[in-house]
Amino acid sequence: MSSHVDPSAPLQGKPSKSTERKLKNEMRTQLISFVFMIFITSMAFLSIASDAVPSGFAIPFILILASVQVILQLYFFMHMNAKGTGWVNVMIWSGLFVAALTVATLMLLIGVVKY
């Protein structure tokens, strides 16, 4: 490594063999998670659109499907499963924690009291 580093110089060369292999695996993982997301999204829409599923069951069911899909997005598409993402996990999960409290609070404060 030289002392003079120009970050705006185009990067040269090819990825290493191991990177190439990793990317190939990643491609497969991402495609599988995409197909799975399409599947659970369709399930969610179908369980509401068809009358076959009683709404008492459909509502918790679609909420669970949404959580599964968000976990897939965060951990696969956004690579939160990779090494060195400790702080990333801390930030997103504290965000989700505060958001959950906010949703519950607002629902109870303005939703339950009828004017």
């Binding site: 906010t102 949703v103 607002l106 303005i110 939703g111």
Partner: peptide, 16 residues
Amino acid sequence: GGETVLFGSLFGTYLG
């Protein structure tokens, strides 16, 4: 993380 809280407040308002 901050954006999550922003949308959380909008979701809570909508649900209420």
